[in-house]
Write a protein that binds this DNA or RNA. Structure first.
Lengths: 122, 122
DNA sequence: CGGCATCCTTCTGGATACTG
DNA sequence: CAGTATCCAGAAGGATGCCG
């Protein structure tokens, strides 16, 4: 993008971003995907713990939506009591680039807004 | 990330993602940023037109939030009637990578869910 | 043109309790 | 453990009209 405003049409790109957000929007969805992505396999209660502030209701709901969108899969192990693993699908793994960009930016951003040291809540 | 689940702690990364989403979450915020980003400078009514389905109220509100977070700046030209340009700040431009990832993924995603041809609404 | 104010409906999401 | 069910407050967000 140059500084002079030549008027190409970018509606296609903007709509692509909107499409992506259709599936990813929600206060928690991206954090949930990150959790599953970073750990490869992750259980319900672990995600509940990873994602700061989420309630089990919301986690349950958003996991279901992500599953419907074929981004994650649910694997039930017949242990006692039952164990459920969540995992990214092949398709879901295509989000890795986005997750990485967001992670990088988030780490930088935390530094910029200051007073929010990374180590504090660890 | 390997297939065997060695248990490193990724809370730092997951929280970074959450931090990023703090600033970027909302049904429209990322689309708005994309619009401004792709056109470099963009006026209120143009963004209103770029972002499919947004109302002026929401646009106004989210622009204000983005400005508060120092991601965009508002430039008033004293024309008649008044013209307002929105532009990414230096800091805001650091989001470019994220926007690009989302655009790429969105274009791919549109292909995957099918029945939503890119050209239709152009 | 670029908003803000108001009204009103829908959706979000927390707290809590309960189930297999 | 991994959810589901219910209740309910508050936020999100659309429609419309007004203003400098």
């Amino acid at each position: 993008m140059t500084d002079n405003d030549y008027t190409a049409c970018h509606k296609r790109e903007i709509m692509a971003v909107h499409d992506a957000m259709d599936v990813l929007s929600g206060k928690w969805k991206i954090s949930i995907i990150s959790s599953i992505c970073y750990y490869n396999k992750r259980r319900f209660s672990d995600i509940l713990n990873d994602v700061n502030g989420i309630s089990n209701k919301m986690l349950s709901k958003e996991l279901k939506e992500l599953e419907m969108n074929l981004l994650i899969k649910r694997i039930v192990l017949d242990s006692q009591p039952v164990t459920v693993q969540y995992q990214l699908t092949e398709y879901g793994r295509s989000l890795q680039t986005i997750i990485n960009s967001l992670t990088d930016w988030g780490l930088e951003h935390r530094r910029v807004i200051a007073g929010k040291p990374t180590e504090a809540v660890l």
